[in-house]
Nucleic acid binder design. Structure first.
Lengths: 142, 142
DNA sequence: TATTGTTATACTCTATAACTATA
DNA sequence: TATAGTTATAGAGTATAACAATA
């Protein structure tokens, strides 16, 4: 039996958790033709109004990729573009009411989908887990 | 301020954690031209020798998607195919030594990449977090 | 000159559909 | 008949490169 460090152990729990969480979101998104990336964008737009380049950098994508992604989301009425007030080169992106409604619906569905996992922990442990994760992330918005 | 349930709070920590973990893995994989899906496949093949259809079902992908994915991985010498011993229709997939070496290298790099996050917790909290996650997953292999 | 965003092009990942071979 | 796997084809997501407009 190979000796594992504490950090290694944590990684071996974190990675499967991430894959399972993403798989659940991917499945729910697929029913509405939403990619994980677009769901992440919608999550960001819940409380921000970034410009294209900010969004691209935050997601680790190229500007050209953002253009295509936002094009498709805009055509579907989920997000909209508007010129930035101070920099005439820049374009702000924000959510439409339809997009906001969709995001809340997704949120609910993801919660339902992951309930079989999360509910293996009692309420106190759920709070403890949420607290540890938040401390680990030092909570930058995703 | 909207009232949130314990489960909702947990979800709002879990989803960003998953996105950040996936982003780190995606970035590391990209340097070696490995998609998240292929990394997940390699992770599975560390200790299993599934047939094509099993792999597809486990990942939530179509058989045709698996064919392409395994084709490319096989051409790169990371995995190999062999006929199943008992069912002549079936094909088993397994890792090559090169694939196994790559997986260990990736594992190390992901650990390094996430260290800035995980090390915000002390060793005791890291153990506690790993334990909670493992209990939540009831540890099915991913 | 550098930055913001878009367009054109190419490749990977994915699904659907049609097919062959075996159970 | 049903299942295992492959091939052909098409669409979404991504990157690179070239471009226009503004800083």
């Amino acid at each position: 039996m190979k000796q594992m460090t504490t950090r290694e152990n944590l990684l071996d729990a974190l990675v499967p958790t991430a894959f399972i969480t993403m798989a659940a979101m991917n499945k729910i998104g697929a029913e509405k033709d939403l990619s994980l990336t677009l769901m992440r964008v919608l999550g960001i737009l819940r409380d921000r109004r970034p410009r294209m380049a900010e969004l691209a950098q935050h997601l680790g994508l190229k500007k050209s990729t953002m253009s295509g992604l936002i094009d498709r989301a805009e055509q579907r009425g989920l997000v909209a573009r508007a010129p930035n007030a101070v920099d005439e080169r820049a374009i702000d992106v924000f959510m439409t009411p339809a997009g906001a409604a969709l995001v809340e619906e997704l949120h609910e569905q993801v919660q339902q989908a992951l309930a079989p996992l999360t509910d293996r922990l009692n309420a106190a442990d759920q709070r403890l887990l949420a607290d540890l994760l938040e401390r680990m992330l030092a909570f930058p918005k995703v």
